[in-house]
């Protein structure tokens, strides 16, 4: 039940992110974002390191 609630909540947040991009007139970025995310996810899944030596977390 808790897992279902968390998944539901995350879908809600993803929806809010899209609404945020739309509201800030960043809708033109959505196709780019989709492609970047797709490749990004593949790379994230396929790699093990996520932190660069320049440890100042800017993003």
């Amino acid at each position: 039940m808790k897992i279902a609630r968390e998944i539901f909540d995350k879908f809600g947040i993803a929806g809010e992110l899209l609404a945020f991009l739309w509201h800030r007139k960043l809708w033109w970025m959505i196709p780019f974002v989709a492609v970047l995310l797709l490749f990004g996810i593949l790379i994230v899944v396929g790699s093990t390191t996520g932190v660069g030596p320049f440890v100042y977390t800017l993003f």
Binding site: E16, L17, F20, L21, R24, L26, M29, F32, V33, L36, L37, F39, G40, I41, I43, V44, S47, T49, G50, V51, G52, T57, F59
Partner: peptide
């Protein structure tokens, strides 16, 4: 979300040089 917006815009404005930065940052974002 606003910080994510910065990540996206910075990535797009500097693409393809920024792509490694995007993929490395994406892990913590996702």
């Amino acid at each position: 979300f606003i910080k994510f917006d910065r990540l996206l815009q910075t990535t797009l404005s500097g693409f393809p040089q920024t792509y490694p930065l995007f993929t490395q940052s994406l892990r913590t974002w996702l």
